[in-house]
């Protein structure tokens, strides 16, 4: 029953949204170059199905690669900031400043520094845009660990490493997954930024770009929907991982 509800309710919401969209386009009498309707999208998907599969895969693996890098670097930076007050005070302004730079402006720089390294460039942008929330949440999770938790183990002669492994790490997992959910969608934005702003013919961003050049508006909208779909899939993979590794943090609903 609950499983059915968990699947049916979101599906119904999506269906309602598509119906409303279809109705809006129909009621306003918009032509497809102004606003494509859902019924225009299926032909576009079908016509370019192989392109969607290939480019979708390109976007997906580069996003995931960037995200993995963000997880590794973000956790590393977060750990340094979480354990050392000096590192926290020193790194925070630097990180905030870096995060404030619009990544669209970094795209041409990256494209110039690493000419032709399309995969690398794309992964780097996905990484740069998504590591910040992870670093911040890990550092906050570690620095707000109540001293009693540490004392319990330290009074038994446990090493710092043991304290980290047994307490700090698992205790930070809920914050980490919260940040990862934000990072997932950010990483997609990063990948597509590179694919659209610095076109090199690969990824859904490139497909979007070619739709723009050939004035194929249903194709452009179809790309957006495909991106949303990939975003949802990756997001729920993170949710599943969260359930496995940090399910204990979920309170029973009263």
């Amino acid at each position: 029953m609950t499983l059915l509800r968990k699947i049916l309710v979101p599906l119904a919401a999506m269906l309602l949204f598509l119906l409303f969209w279809e109705w809006l386009v129909w009621a306003k009498g918009w032509p497809d170059y102004k606003m494509a309707s859902p019924s225009d999208l299926w032909p576009a998907f079908w016509k370019y199905r192989w392109l969607f599969l290939e480019n979708g895969w390109q976007t997906l693996w580069r996003t995931v690669a960037g995200l993995l890098l963000a997880v590794i670097a973000g956790t590393g930076i977060g750990m340094v900031m979480g354990f050392s007050r000096i590192a926290r005070e020193g790194l925070y302004p630097l990180l905030v400043g870096f995060n404030a730079i619009p990544k669209a402006t970094v795209v041409p720089i990256m494209a110039l520094i690493f000419v032709g390294e399309h995969d690398f460039n794309t992964i780097m942008i996905a990484f740069m845009i998504s590591f910040f929330p992870i670093a911040v949440s890990v550092s906050i999770g570690l620095s707000t660990l109540e001293p009693e938790y540490r004392d319990i183990l330290r009074s038994l002669g446990a090493s710092q490493l043991t304290v980290f492994r047994k307490i700090a790490l698992p205790k930070t997992l809920p914050e980490f997954f919260g940040a990862l959910k934000v990072a997932v969608t950010l990483a997609f934005i990063g990948t597509n930024l590179m694919e659209i702003v610095s076109p090199h013919g690969r990824g859904l961003g490139a497909l979007f770009d070619s739709g723009k050049i050939s004035a194929d508006y249903p194709l452009m909208f179809a790309v957006l929907i495909a991106l949303a779909f990939l975003g949802i899939v990756l997001y729920y993979i993170v949710v599943a991982l969260e359930k496995i590794f940090a399910g204990w943090a979920e309170r029973p609903q009263g």
């Binding site: 109540e146 009693e148 938790y149 004392d151 319990i152 183990l153 009074s155 038994l156 002669g157 446990a158 043991t162 047994k166 307490i167 698992p170 205790k171 997992l173 940090a246 204990w248 943090a249």
Partner: peptide, 24 residues
Amino acid sequence: MAFQNPVLLEWRSILSNVLLPLEI
């Protein structure tokens, strides 16, 4: 040691929480 805050580890069962010192 026992404090005012019981500082049990939320991700462990009660039994596993009690076993913690024996792991150290």
